[in-house]
C-alpha cells in the first residue's frame, strides 16, 4: 500500500504542476487579450472562452492534492474533541462522505461529458471541441476518489496502531517548501 500512496502522491503532484501551467497560460492570455484590444484594436476572438476552459482545468486539477494533504475546508469544532477510538470511526465516516460525493460527481459529470461527445458540442465563439475539457471533471474527481479510498484504508492501519502512510498536517506544511524543485 505504501507504493500505492507514493504513486498517488506523484500523480497528484503532477496534476498540481499541470494546474499551475494552466494558471500561467490563463494569466498570460488575459493579459494579452487586454493589450491586443487596447493597443491594436484586435481583441483575441475566443480568449474569454479559452480562459474559462483553463480556469476549470486549473480548479479541478488542484482538488486531488487538497484531499491528499487534508487542505479542504472542514468544520471540525466538534470532531476534533472526540476521544480516540471514536475519532477514527468519525474520520472514516467523513472519508465515506467524500467518497460518496466524488462517486456521484464522477457518474454525472461522465454522463455530461459523454453526451457532449456524442453530439460533438462545441464552444460558442471559437468552436472548440468541448468534451475533452469536460473530461477533466470526472478524471480529477476519480483521482480524488482514489486518494480518499487510500486514506480510508490507511485509517484502519492507524486504528491498528501502525503509522500512517500519509503526511500529517505539519509534514504537509513543510512539504510546501520543497515542491519548487522542477
Amino acid at each position: 500500500m505504501k507504493i500505492l500512496v507514493n504513486a498517488a502522491y506523484r500523480l497528484v503532484q503532477l496534476m498540481n504542476f499541470l494546474g499551475a501551467a494552466a494558471a500561467i497560460v490563463m494569466t498570460a492570455m488575459v493579459f494579452t487579450g487586454a493589450v491586443m484590444r487596447y493597443f491594436f484594436g484586435a481583441p483575441l476572438r475566443f480568449s474569454d472562452e479559452m480562459v474559462g476552459l483553463l480556469f476549470i482545468s486549473m480548479a479541478f486539477l488542484a482538488i486531488p492534492l487538497g484531499v491528499f494533504r487534508n487542505r479542504h475546508i472542514t468544520i471540525d469544532i466538534l470532531s476534533r474533541n472526540i476521544p480516540r477510538p471514536w475519532a477514527h470511526l468519525v474520520n472514516a465516516v467523513a472519508l465515506l462522505i467524500l467518497m460518496l460525493f466524488s462517486a456521484a460527481f464522477i457518474m454525472t459529470s461522465y454522463q455530461f461529458m459523454d453526451f457532449s461527445r456524442e453530439i460533438t458540442a462545441r464552444s460558442d465563439i471559437g468552436s472548440l471541441l468541448l468534451w475533452p475539457w469536460m473530461a477533466i471533471m470526472p478524471f480529477c474527481m476519480s483521482v480524488a476518489f482514489l486518494v480518499a479510498v487510500l486514506q480510508f484504508l490507511d485509517s484502519f492501519r492507524v486504528l491498528a496502531g501502525k503509522e500512517s502512510f500519509f503526511p500529517g498536517e505539519d509534514e504537509a506544511a513543510s512539504d510546501d517548501t520543497e515542491e519548487g524543485s522542477l
Binding site: T74, I75, V90, I97, L100, F101
Partner: peptide, 12 residues
C-alpha cells in the same frame, strides 16, 4: 453530519 464528522465541507 458535517459538523459531527468534520467531513470535507464541499463534499457534504
Amino acid at each position: 453530519l458535517t459538523l459531527v464528522t468534520g467531513a470535507v465541507l464541499g463534499a457534504s
